[in-house]
Design a protein around this nucleic acid. Structure first.
Length: 268
DNA sequence: CATCATGTTATAAT
DNA sequence: CATTATAACATGAT
């Protein structure tokens, strides 16, 4: 599920426990989600610590504890839940933090493409500090985007949008949404984008992020009714704009969904 | 039983 | 070296 806005929504699930102390750490140490850290160190390092902040950046989440940092990536099927004690861990609950008061913080992920990271110290870990600017950040300027686009002139635009080092937080549905809104074919080559088209890409990337954050990110409510979002997973899927049956095809190993009539390759 | 899934990464091939 | 394709990961839904 999780792209930019879904990640924000899930991160806020744990927010009610800000100010609480970790009383007990429950984890399945052999779960694949712990491949990026030492579960024992995590358990010992979190015990007794106070949750200070819930942060997100793109698809990454970082939970700041007193002198300790818990990073979580939700992968394809991860989610965070807030429960209250007593709580019995479910089958796919890999990390359960029993906090003071009665709040229980749960990280569940059936497919385990998600990952947990942990570090101790006064400063946020390097991987977090080095994340590239998100489309909604001030650093994501038109000139920054122009350079990004020009650096990969021959990579299909859809693939570019999915690159987390350039568009952190954009996932499969958001990339398809941006391209559909712009009436651009997923195979569009960045080299064929005019300066005007790059300006549109800049504005639309920001807009799709902003609207998604204001709907899904706030309360999981639906994005606007005419968005491609509502059609891309349905079986009978007409283009919301022209009614043409949407096309679906693998591009770089992911399903691209687009309208073959509205979304054209720009003339060069 | 077969296919597909809102993600990332290692490895192979070009 | 840069780019692209493929497989792998583990599980549930259709």
């Amino acid at each position: 599920m999780p792209e930019l806005a879904e990640v924000l929504f899930y991160s806020k699930e744990w927010a009610p426990a800000v100010g609480r102390l970790v009383k007990r750490v429950e984890l399945h140490s052999r779960a694949r989600v712990f491949r990026g850290c030492d579960p024992t160190q995590l358990e010992e390092g979190l015990l007794g610590k106070k949750l200070l902040k819930c942060l997100t950046h793109g698809k990454q989440m970082l939970f700041e504890f007193s002198e300790a940092w818990l990073g979580i990536h939700l992968g394809m099927t991860g989610e965070l839940k807030l429960a209250s004690s007593p709580y019995d861990a479910k089958k796919h609950d890999h990390l359960v933090l029993h906090m003071s008061g009665s709040s229980v913080l749960v990280f569940a992920d059936p497919r385990q493409f998600g990952a947990v990271r942990f570090s101790v110290g006064p400063a946020a870990p390097p991987w977090w500090r080095e994340l590239p600017p998100q489309p909604i950040d001030s650093g994501f300027t038109l000139s920054y985007l122009t350079e990004l686009v020009q650096r990969s002139p021959k990579q299909p635009l859809k693939a570019l949008l999915l690159d987390q080092s350039r568009f952190p937080g954009i996932g499969n549905w958001m990339a398809d949404e941006i391209l559909w809104q712009l009436k651009l074919n997923p195979q569009t080559l960045p080299a064929d984008l005019s300066p005007k088209a790059i300006r549109s890409l800049h504005a639309m990337t920001k807009k799709v992020c902003e609207v998604a954050l204001a709907t899904i990110g706030v309360d999981w409510s639906d994005p606007p009714a005419k968005w491609l979002f509502h059609q891309r997973w349905s079986s009978n899927n007409p283009c919301p704009r022209c009614g043409t049956k949407l096309a679906k095809e693998q591009l770089r190993g992911r399903t691209a969904c687009w309208c073959p009539k509205c979304q054209r390759l720009p003339k060069r």
